[in-house]
């Protein structure tokens, strides 16, 4: 039986109240955001669930060319938000739009999706590529970069009582381009692999680039060696091929019963190459041609 020891569900109205309940060791309480992950992890020892649904953390705000998104915002709201659609070449919108089904997106929240990444989770890959910041509130507040946040599984380093409250997406300058692609067997299926690339260009010169691969391991990985091949160089098919080759070789791949390591490396090569052809070389690469 799932949640076999569950005794209570509480509904705090403020973040401070939620933190207080979650900090109390004796209560054995766990945060409940969309609640969708409980279908995958039965949490047998949990005695209390603290619903975050009444906290004032459901918002999307534009700020100085960036975005601030509250942790309890459902993914569906990202999909209907004009601000999200217009931000970062639409990369965040594209990612949100391809998470689960419409029904799932009405439940899954931004915070829940980031705090408990699964091998198929989408947001983490893009949050890392966009160099977003994560606001955490507990007895003290702390701000982490996405890079710091995803060095370990977030649930391992979040202290008792700490909540992710907001994701801060930095301004996205005009000379930046971004794209996200994922490979699924059917439209709604859990992704086998995904890639997000954010780069800065002047003409065809790649000034800066971040390449992130998700789904090869539970946590998203930056592929620094592939980035290095492109940084401060004039974009060309040879460089793009080289970078995608290196990305496919360098990523760590954990065991996944759904496909072989070799297959994931092939997917990585195809996705990195296809995205770079689109946003660095301005080629029109239809989705079917990626693979």
């Amino acid at each position: 039986m799932r949640l076999a020891k569950l005794q209570r569900v509480s509904y705090p109205e403020t973040v401070a109240e939620a933190i207080q309940i979650l900090s109390d060791k004796k209560r054995g309480a766990v945060a409940l955001s969309g609640g969708v992950s409980f279908v995958f992890s039965p949490l047998q020892s949990v005695e209390e669930l603290v619903s975050l649904s009444r906290l004032p953390l459901n918002y999307i705000k534009r700020k100085n060319g960036g975005l601030r998104i509250g942790a309890t915002t459902p993914i569906a709201d990202l999909v209907t938000s004009r601000a999200v659609k217009n931000y970062g070449d639409g990369i965040l919108w594209e990612t949100a739009h391809r998470i689960g089904s419409t029904l799932n997106r009405n439940l899954i929240t931004v915070g829940g999706n980031l705090v408990q990444p699964f091998i198929w989770s989408d947001l983490s890959t893009v949050v890392l590529a966009l160099r977003a910041g994560i606001k955490i509130q507990g007895k003290k507040s702390r701000d982490l970069s996405a890079e710091e946040f995803f060095t370990r599984l977030p649930r391992q380093f979040l202290k008792r009582g700490e909540l992710v409250t907001e994701i801060v997406f930095p301004p996205f300058p005009k000379n930046y381009r971004a794209a996200y692609e994922k490979f699924t067997l059917t439209e709604n299926d859990f992704a086998l692999l995904k890639v997000a690339v954010v780069l800065a260009r002047s003409g065809r010169v790649c000034r800066d680039v971040i390449i992130v691969v998700g789904g090869a391991t539970i946590l998203p990985q930056r592929v620094l060696s592939a980035e290095e091949i492109l940084r401060k160089k004039i974009g060309s098919q040879i460089l793009v091929n080289e970078a995608s080759e290196v990305a496919a070789e360098e990523i760590k791949v954990s065991r996944d019963i759904r496909c072989s390591e070799e297959y994931k490396r092939d997917l990585c090569r195809a996705l990195v190459r296809g995205i770079l052809e689109r946003i660095l070389l301005d080629q029109k690469v239809p989705e079917w041609k990626l693979f």
């Binding site: 569900v9 409940l32 969708v36 799932n104």
Partner: peptide, 16 residues
């Protein structure tokens, strides 16, 4: 007002 999967939600999440 939103269509959701009733199998994924605890009844306790629907208070109020």
């Amino acid at each position: 007002g939103r269509a959701v999967n009733a199998c994924l939600i605890l009844a306790g999440q629907c208070n109020g």
